[in-house]
Structure formats: C-alpha cells, structure tokens
Design a protein around this nucleic acid. Structure first.
Lengths: 155, 155
DNA sequence: TAAATAATATAATTTTTCAGTAAAGTCAAA
DNA sequence: TTTGACTTTACTGAAAAATTATATTATTTA
C-alpha cells in the first residue's frame, strides 16, 4: 500500500509552482521545475498533461511560457492532484468494477468473504479521500514554508 | 495505492477460519481453505507462516491437523492480519526510514516539499490504521454472515 | 511401523506494474 | 523563422508481487 511516485512528484511539482509563483503572473517552465525538483522534464510533461486536463494548471506556450495554477491555491486540494495523475483511489479492484479482480484472469469476486473486506476497504477509502480533500495546496505550501524557515533558523 | 492480494487473501483466509470453526476445537487444514477460497495451498502456506509468527493462529501437524485461531476472534483485528503479512503500512518510504526513497538509487529525500507531503501521508496512515484496528475478525465474520443470509433470503 | 496427512521452509519462476526514457511532432511568441 | 515549450505515443528496464515447485519434518491412523 504505497502512494506511487507519480502522486508524490505531482504534489511536489505543484508545491513548487505555488512557492515560485509571483501572484501567479509569470509562467513557470518545466525546465525550471525539473532542475529544482530533480525530476526529468519528460516525466514532468506526462504529469502536467494530466494536471492540465484536470484543470489544475494552465499553460502558455512559446518563449517565456510555462505553467500557472488554474485556480487559487486554496481551491486546489491534494486529492485533486493525486487523483488527476493516478486516477481514483481504489484499494481493491472489485470496489470500482464491482467484480473483476485481475485483468489477465478475469475471475469474478464471488466469495462473500470478499464483500466483508470490501466494506472495510470502502470505509478506509472514504477516510483517505476525506483527508486528501481537506488539505489544500495552500496548506501544503505553508507547511513547506514553515519547514524552510525552521531550517534557516537552525543555522 | 492498493491493498495487495497478500493482505486480502490473509483476511479472507482468516474469515474462513472463523466461519468454519466449531468453537475453535477442530483444526482446519490449508487444503480445505485452499479449496473453499480458491487460493493455492502453497501461497496459503506462506501467509500462514506469517500469521503464526504474529501469534494470530496456532497449528497442529499431521493427519487431522491444521490451524486454529490463537485468540478469540474479537481480540484479533484487521490491522493485525494485514500488518502480519504485509509489514507496517507505509505510504512513502521516507516515513519509515526517515530518508531513503529508493533502494537501488539511495537518493536522499532532501526536498523540503517532500516533508509537507510526509505530514499529509502520516496523517492518512494514522487514519488507515485507526480503521483497521477498530475492525475485529469477529466483525468481519458477522458482516460475512449477514451477506450470506441476505443472499439466501433473495432466493 | 508403514502409509497418509499436513505443516514447515526455501527456492525458483512467472506476471504485472512502475518509473523513466526516447522520439517525433505541434504550436505560439519573440 | 526560429526558439522554446507543450503534446503524444511508444518503448525499455527494473523492481515488486503473485504463483508454483521441491524438499523436509512431524503426527496420526490403519
């Protein structure tokens, strides 16, 4: 049970965007994010594709172009970001499809025991989404800011 | 973000154990569980190895042998079972190790942005464990029982 | 006590997913 | 018209997960 790097990288990139924006006026290029976050440009491209489709960022092309937040940082939450790049959070396939367990051997989930497990997993999924949806990008930005400050003060 | 089959199978096997026990007197063989749950015997062996080490089941060898619950079903919870076969629930490696992100390229998690993400993931992990630890095997057994009953009534 | 049963332990194999890379193309602004 | 940036698709290698295989040891029962 892990959050894949896709989700983590997307969060990181979005936090980077908030931190480096000047009132969301100057587009930020993937090249810059790539450098700061040490994530390959091509990989970022994949992620921002999805972030854009989910209306979380907007882009301007050409020289001096790049990405901007599509909404205010307090209107974007962690759940939006993660679901944009990873799809909906599903702890077991039968929850979404209702049935299938595997792709290769599309066996039905016909064990009643599974249904009890499904009840449990659905409950957990709810809790996860609840937490993700009550944490805004602004929150994440502030936390980051505070950590940076602390690190500075220590020196 | 998925619960692996290991965890799901272990839950299923344990529910099977509760459902088919006669006051926990007659050991249940993996062969029977394997048949009922359609999980290969060898795979079950791996799982029960860990369940035993975690003191959730006890075993007797030889003919007529098999597994029994090591404690009462209301003293065993879903979290015990899942953690027994999957290890602790960790949504990102840096949470456990404090630092490392990957094994192969042991790069440090030196981005402050990650720390904000860690705060979020730790919160979620707490919630997950909370839910898992408040759902007993007895609960799961009852839910299963109810579902079986409903299915019967429908006919 | 031999045969059958069932757990224990480890190793090997297969399958699937993930992470990252590459390439070729499109579009917009300076 | 050229640069810089976004778009899209395909591919590859590595790691993790799932499954299978092979012995071995311990009990019971006929």
């Amino acid at each position: 049970m892990k959050l894949s790097t896709r989700g983590r990288y997307a969060l990181r990139a979005m936090i980077d965007l908030v931190q480096n924006q000047y009132n969301n006026l100057m587009p930020i290029s993937l090249r810059d994010i790539s450098k700061r976050q040490e994530i390959s440009r091509q990989y970022l491209e994949q992620l921002f594709n999805k972030l854009k489709k989910a209306d979380l960022v907007k882009s301007t092309r050409g020289a001096g172009g790049g990405y901007l937040l599509a909404k205010e940082a307090n209107k974007i939450n962690a759940g939006d970001i993660i679901r944009a790049v990873e799809g909906p959070i599903v702890l077991a396939d039968c929850i979404l499809t209702g049935r299938k367990i595997k792709k290769s051997t599309p066996k039905k989930c016909n064990k009643v025991e599974d249904c009890a497990i499904r009840v449990l997993l659905e409950l957990i999924t709810q809790k996860i989404n609840q937490t993700l949806d009550t944490t805004s990008l602004q929150d994440l930005g502030r936390i980051t800011q505070n950590i940076k400050k602390e690190q500075k003060d220590e020196r």
